[in-house]
Amino acid sequence: MRAESRKEEIINAASILFKEKGYSAVTMRDLAKAMGIKAASLYNHIQSKQEILATIIIDLAEMFTNGMNQIVNSDENTIQKLEKIIDLHIDVTLRNADGLASLNNDWMHLEEENLQYFEKMRQEYEENFRDIVKKGVARNEIKSFNIEIIVFSTLSTLRTLYLWYPKQRNIEAEMLKHDMVSVLLKGIV
Rank of each mutant, 00 (worst) to 15 (best):
R6V: 10
H89Y: 05
N140L: 04
K49M: 04
I16H: 11
S48H: 11
K135H: 07
L17N: 06
D75F: 00
I11S: 14
E113S: 03
L110I: 02
W107R: 00
A25S: 08
S15M: 01
I90F: 00
A14P: 08
E62F: 05
K21W: 06
Q50P: 15
I71C: 08
L103F: 03
G187C: 02
K38Q: 13
L176C: 04
K49L: 06
E119K: 00
H178N: 13
Q70T: 12
L155M: 02
N140T: 11
A61P: 01
N146T: 14
K135A: 10
E83S: 15
E76T: 14
L53D: 10
D30I: 03
N44Q: 04
F118P: 00
L42I: 15
S102H: 03
Y43N: 14
A101P: 13
L53A: 11
F18D: 10
E148T: 10
D91V: 09
F18C: 14
I11E: 15
S156G: 12
N128T: 07
E20T: 11
A138T: 14
E148I: 08
R159E: 13
Y165C: 03
H178L: 07
E127N: 14
Y165Q: 12
Y117I: 01
I188H: 13
Y165N: 11
N104I: 14
I150D: 03
Q50N: 08
A97E: 07
I132H: 12
N96L: 00
I71Y: 05
N105K: 01
E124G: 10
S153D: 13
A54L: 00
P166W: 02
K19D: 10
D98K: 04
A97V: 10
V181G: 03
E8R: 07
I90T: 12
Q70P: 15
L60A: 06
H109V: 03
K177Y: 05
F18V: 15
E4I: 14
E8I: 14
S144H: 11
V72N: 12
Y162G: 05
E174W: 04
G22C: 01
S144M: 02
E51P: 07
F64Y: 11
I58F: 05
I86F: 02
D98L: 05
M121Q: 10
A39R: 15
K49D: 12
A61M: 02
M180T: 14
K135Y: 11
D98H: 08
I57W: 00
R130I: 15
T154S: 03
S153I: 08
K38H: 13
R6K: 12
K84H: 13
I149A: 09
E112W: 00
K49F: 05
A54W: 00
L155Y: 03
K167T: 07
K120R: 06
L176M: 02
G67Y: 04
T55R: 07
Y43G: 10
R139C: 05
S74Q: 02
E113P: 03
A13L: 09
W107T: 00
N140K: 09
F118R: 00
V133L: 04
E113N: 02
G22R: 03
